[in-house]
Design a binder for these strands. Sequence first.
DNA 1: GGAAATCACTTAACATGTTAATCATCTCCC
DNA 2: GGGAGATGATTAACATGTTAAGTGATTTCC
Lengths: 177, 177
Amino acid sequence: MARKKLDEIRPEQGDDAAARRTPMREFSRSLPMSLLRAREAVMRQFRPSLRNHGLTEQQWRILRALTAVDEIEVTELARVAFLLGPSLSRILRDLEGRALIERKAAENDARRAVVSISAKGLKLIEAVAPTSEVIYAAITRRYGARKLAELQEMLGALEASLAGMGSAGDAEAEADE
Amino acid sequence: MARKKLDEIRPEQGDDAAARRTPMREFSRSLPMSLLRAREAVMRQFRPSLRNHGLTEQQWRILRALTAVDEIEVTELARVAFLLGPSLSRILRDLEGRALIERKAAENDARRAVVSISAKGLKLIEAVAPTSEVIYAAITRRYGARKLAELQEMLGALEASLAGMGSAGDAEAEADE
DNA sequence: GGAAATCACTTAACATGTTAATCATCTCCC
DNA sequence: GGGAGATGATTAACATGTTAAGTGATTTCC
């Protein structure tokens, strides 16, 4: 049930004019590309503001996540901020160096680290948040609040649909299920 | 017209139990996070197969784009594969080293470079494509073809909505319009 | 027709994504 | 209570994202 054949992917090879007229139509419509472009269109709105405050997108995600809790373990923070462990480790080192967060060992388990936002970090968040809210409101107004809610629901459903789909690379996998 | 106040973002600070019970609900529902998670859920399906063939996601995007045209200039390739110039430069260097693509100077303009996929590159594509199509088909089946088309249309509309929204960082911008 | 501005591409520098390996703890179980 | 295995976090190594600077080649325009 292949969606299309390679012959369709590369039509009219050798015909320069025709190939130049329709560059990558099917490819541009793939789901990963659609998601990538949509996200980039959104983030392009936020990045300049964050940059003005010396924050990257991921650093902002972490600080933003920390404002919602009193303290949180690193693994749990990675989950809610949707970052991989190694990325989070590096960013936490940087944020700790800038005194935007604080870190301490967990009480009952020396392996676990507990992170919290500092007063300085909270102050920074409070400086950035108003602009972010204005941008978010502008996006909502342009796209439509109802449509935005519907989109987010469909995105969530997509995530849920794929939740139990175990990769199945090429010849490996399904060896332990 | 701020969507919410900081007080709402960080409710019940100091109440560990409550904070732990609802970790970052609002934050997880932000549009950028929804798009990021959805895309990751999709790509997680494809990455193992690509990896088995020694390709990263971006390398695959480039080769995939090249199969649709006879040859293409670097800037146009960056546009269709949705990569920034510097990333593309590095990847092309690597792909050329692996003899998966070929590069030559444009006829009328020595600044421009023209790229095309090699026979070896085409062979690789033909080896990967079947698995990718199977995965894509599985995603379509799980999520629903109609729903998938609707989602892509909404993503395109979001992109279009934000097309003419000129950043407006904090205090700069709108200086040259 | 030549200096200045522009353009296409590349390099540089730093931050993150991604997988594998390492390190220190902790748990389990004998 | 001690060793094998599991777990939480970090480090390593490589690839890409992101912005700025650099390098030739080309166009503009006086």
